[in-house]
């Protein structure tokens, strides 16, 4: 049997959340396992209260910050914790989806949940993923049954007959909505710096500070370098603002065949 264990927990209300997650944490502590809890900040206090003094023995992480980008959770939270305890079984509570996640964010969250199964296959790790069964849309809960091999709720534990993470990854790999308007530039090796400058310019107009503009410049540099190396040697950068965000898109003639690309530490 695969030593990796990945149950979804469907909870109803704060009390059920606190009792179930605290029991999971205590089971790990009793077995001598390192334990991390990465949940939205409004849930950290619930677990701390329920655990009492035991809360001081675990790592507490605000998922709204650490997991702001769902694509960062595997390398920056889950693998970061598991890899820091080599040779030991670790236990993590990871809640990446909450009701305020937007329609833009949700597909990346679902893909993240599916990819956990590939990233941790064969690993001595248990990751419990709580789902707010009252606050989340029914289709989100249906999809959780496709990304988790085991389902838990107040009535007990069952094997998920719908488990099919590969299909979740594929079904969310769809063309992205076109922006209403954007600034764009075709680039190749000759004018690569102009791609970074295009993004940095709009970022400055939108009020980003110097450090964040450096991040944006670096992200576009990484994407455009990928186009040169793996995407046919040229690409198209487009930048625009929508829904309170700056969007930087790089497209090219490449193909990302590895679903875990960008998630390996």
């Amino acid at each position: 049997a695969d030593p990796f264990v990945h149950p979804a927990l469907f909870y109803r209300g704060d009390r059920e959340f606190a009792v179930a997650t605290a029991a999971f944490v205590r089971e790990g502590l009793a077995a001598g396992e390192p334990v991390a809890v990465a949940v939205p900040h409004w849930h950290l206090g619930l677990i701390e209260s329920e655990l009492g003094a035991d809360a001081g023995r675990i790592s507490l992480i605000d998922m709204t910050r650490a997991g702001r980008n769902p694509g960062r959770i595997i390398p920056g939270v889950l693998r970061a914790f598991a890899d820091s305890h080599p040779g030991r079984r670790v236990r993590i509570v990871g809640e990446p989806i909450w009701p305020a996640r937007t329609a833009d964010e949700y597909p990346a969250c679902a893909q993240h949940e599916a990819l956990i199964n590939y990233s941790f296959a064969g690993a001595e790790v248990t990751i419990l993923c709580p789902y707010d069964a009252e606050g989340l849309a029914p289709e989100v809960l249906v999809e959780a049954a496709r990304t988790h091999p085991v389902l838990l709720d107040a009535s007990g534990e069952q094997v998920s007959a719908a488990f099919a993470p590969d299909k979740v990854i594929i079904e969310h790999n769809v063309p992205l909505d076109e922006p209403a308007e954007c600034r764009s530039l075709r680039f190749d090796r000759a004018n690569l710096p102009a791609a970074r400058t295009l993004a940095a310019g709009l970022a400055a107009e939108l009020g980003f500070g110097p450090d964040r503009i450096d991040d944006i410049r670096l992200a576009v540099a990484e994407l455009s370098a990928n186009s040169l190396d793996h995407g046919g040697g040229s690409g198209l950068v487009r930048v625009w603002a929508e829904h309170g965000r700056l969007v930087c898109e790089v497209s090219d003639a490449g193909h990302i065949a590895d679903p875990l690309a960008g998630r390996r530490p």
Binding site: R72, G76, F208, R212, G244, L246, V247, R263
Partner: peptide, 30 residues
Amino acid sequence: GLLIVNLLSDLVRVHTREGATAVRAYFDVP
């Protein structure tokens, strides 16, 4: 590569198929 983009940005979305890939990095406006 993409790992750096994931670590720096607030959301990443990808559409990829044989011969065409688009990657979007989103940054929350302050």
